[in-house]
Design a protein around this nucleic acid. Structure first.
Lengths: 104, 104
DNA sequence: CATCTTGGTAAGACATGGCTTACCAATGGT
DNA sequence: ACCATTGGTAAGCCATGTCTTACCAAGATG
């Protein structure tokens, strides 16, 4: 379980958002990510640790290569936090869901 | 039109998130917000400017009092950014909306 | 008009965070 | 066995951001 604080802190950095954007295209190794960005590999590595703790990213080791990919958990946490302040959209969604159930 | 970068940068700070949380209870003046938080009024004032530029907050002047309240625009921008990386939920929502239209 | 309230701004102290280079560990390949 | 690849960590530099106090402007209140 991630705290929304961790997620929002993680997303509050342009380089980390760039990493997320790059990973949106599919899983990549650390070095491959670094090639896409104007920062060094260690910088990417450090950012990945933050993103991982925020459950925005996870990785699988295969040999010496670490393959990173997006993790939905963090994004869901962020969305949940946002909707806390938006009872309106929350109500809309609930109404929509209810309408759908009526229809089905 | 806000950039999602501005919004996420703004939300990437614990004090600013506290301000948002406080304002979720309803509009407040700058001084009133500061009383709820462990920081000085100037600090709050500075944060409010950042939040305002991110369209997470807006205010109306009435005399010397500035009444701040949440602005949905920034939150929508943040949500839109998140959903960019979540074609899945986006597709679900679209399907849901379509189902609803069929029903109505 | 005098004074209190309200809040924005300026200047500066301080901490934190992001980045780099250098280094080390571990696995893969020849 | 040897070397290349891959990536995490350490140390340290530097910029930026966050906070404080002090100050000032503008409107309310008596």
């Amino acid at each position: 379980m991630v705290t929304s604080d961790a997620v929002l802190d993680a997303l509050g950095n342009a380089t980390r958002r760039s990493i997320v954007r790059v990973l949106a295209g599919g899983p990549l190794t650390v070095g491959a990510i670094a090639l896409e960005l104007p920062v060094s590999r260690p910088a990417v590595s450090q950012h990945l640790r933050v993103l991982e703790q925020a459950e925005l990213v996870r990785f699988t080791e295969s040999g010496t290569k670490n393959l990173y990919e997006l993790d939905r958990a963090g994004f869901l946490a962020a969305r949940a936090w946002l909707e806390t302040f938006w009872s309106e959209s929350l109500a809309q969604f609930a109404a929509l869901a209810e309408a759908t159930q009526e229809g089905g």
